[in-house]
Amino acid sequence: MINDINYDDYAQKLTNEYKSAYEKMAIYIEAILFPGDNLSVIMNEVVDLLLSAQEDSRPLEDVIGSDMKLFCNQLVKSHTNTPLHRIFQFLNAYRILSLIAFILTTIGLIVDFFDGVYSPWTTHVEMGAFFCSMFISLFIFILFKLLTRKLIFKYSWYTKKVDNIITVILFFIIFISIFFIPEQIDSLIPLPRWLFLFLTLSIYTICTLHKNQQKRIDQQEENYFSFDDSVMNENIMQMRKKYNKYCVKQKKKNLIPLDVQTWYEERFQKDKRMDHYGSICFIIMVLIIIIGTFITSETPDAMLFTSLLLIIEIPIYKLLDKGKIARLKLYQMIHEKQIDIFDQSLNQ
């Protein structure tokens, strides 16, 4: 059981200059980290250090020095992974995308083969828009991190709220760059189909092998932390935040808030109903899209679109289902142990 994952919860105890320093350092450290670096371990050290300084009433400068940026850089440097591991972690973000591209291209190959297309193996796969979108997204992401590094310690107005607003804006820019790039760009990268299949399958295979190897290594360590554990901890953290916000709202209305057990019971029942109706609506929506496609399109096109839709939607549904299972498991643990959501024994 790991108790240091929800470092942000412990950071709520920080006040004044210690809280301000934590917020600045959290933004900066996240901006200089590379995929695969362990943010939770680094930030847990930061919170422990600041909490200890606050309890002892030690000046912030005595703890981290006069250069906060230098302190963060040295701290991150001591926890970063090897360059090779970082490269694999970066490529791992495109692992599933490569598998989806491989499957869709294979389906296109099969359709062309039965349609009698000449040399379907060497037909060009026009992936210009896809690659341009990926590079534009990566460029925007890197630019955002670089700007964050430059602005965070230079201007006092650059707070967590400002960072969140900029993140949302950039998300929509990336979304637009991915889905609304003109089709004419496709002609920029006319790869042969066989080469594209080889590249996508190679990326998926190599990244999967590395991921499985890393998983075996992690399982040998006592602090192995699975994806299901992270989903559980995220649910616990969100419930704590929601209850705190609920208490603040009740106090503003001069009302007495419900005790945490009663509030959680009501909240769980509400979330349970939302999970049930949400799953039904999700399935109905997908069925309507599939039926509508078969009605308005030719059978081969409809089958291709349906395959694409299921490839995208099934992982999303499974991810939502993991959240539902985590909420149920949390509810059962609370009742079995006779505790509330703020008990630290719940953290995985």
Rank of each mutant, 00 (worst) to 15 (best):
L75R: 04
Y118M: 10
K211H: 15
F180I: 10
L319G: 11
E30W: 05
Q344Y: 09
N38S: 06
D115N: 10
I32C: 07
T296L: 05
I203L: 14
M127N: 09
V111N: 14
Y118C: 01
R216H: 11
I169S: 04
I295M: 11
M232W: 06
L60M: 10
F282Q: 08
A11V: 08
K69W: 01
I206P: 05
E298G: 15
F198P: 02
V111I: 15
N235L: 03
E45H: 09
F175M: 03
L255Q: 13
D301M: 09
I280F: 11
H85K: 12
V47A: 00
E55W: 04
I284E: 02
Q220R: 06
D301C: 04
T167S: 14
F139H: 01
Q269F: 11
I283L: 08
E266M: 08
L310S: 07
Y18A: 03
N235C: 06
L14W: 00
I325L: 13
F342T: 14
D62L: 01
D259I: 04
S297Y: 14
I325E: 15
N235F: 04
D115Y: 12
T122M: 10
K249F: 08
L75P: 01
S345N: 12
F34D: 07
G116Y: 11
F305I: 13
I316L: 12
C281H: 13
H335I: 02
E265L: 09
F180H: 06
M303W: 13
N223G: 08
S137M: 09
F34G: 00
T148Y: 06
N244F: 09
K318H: 11
K211S: 15
T262Y: 00
F71H: 03
F144Q: 13
T80A: 06
V117Y: 15
D8I: 03
M237E: 14
K245I: 10
C207T: 15
K252M: 08
A302I: 07
L60Q: 04
K145R: 15
Y94F: 14
A53K: 00
R327F: 13
I185Q: 07
T15F: 01
D115G: 03
F34C: 05
A129D: 04
K329N: 15
L91S: 05
T293V: 10
Q338T: 05
L49P: 11
Q54T: 00
K324F: 13
V231W: 02
F71Q: 03
A326E: 02
F90L: 11
N212W: 08
D301V: 11
T293S: 13
R216V: 11
I32V: 11
I206F: 12
S78I: 07
P315Y: 00
I206R: 07
I100R: 06
T262H: 09
I100W: 12
M274N: 13
R149E: 02
I206G: 07
V168W: 07
T299L: 12
I2T: 13
E221P: 01
G128N: 03
K77W: 02
T80D: 06
M25T: 09
I27G: 04
S133P: 01
K24F: 00
V168H: 03
K77M: 07
Y7M: 06
E183P: 02
L104M: 15
I295A: 12
F171R: 11
I107M: 10
P59Y: 00
I280L: 11
G65V: 00
P35C: 03
L51N: 09
P192A: 14
F90R: 04
Q269C: 07
E298R: 12
F131Y: 06
L319P: 00
L170C: 14
I288L: 08
I280A: 15
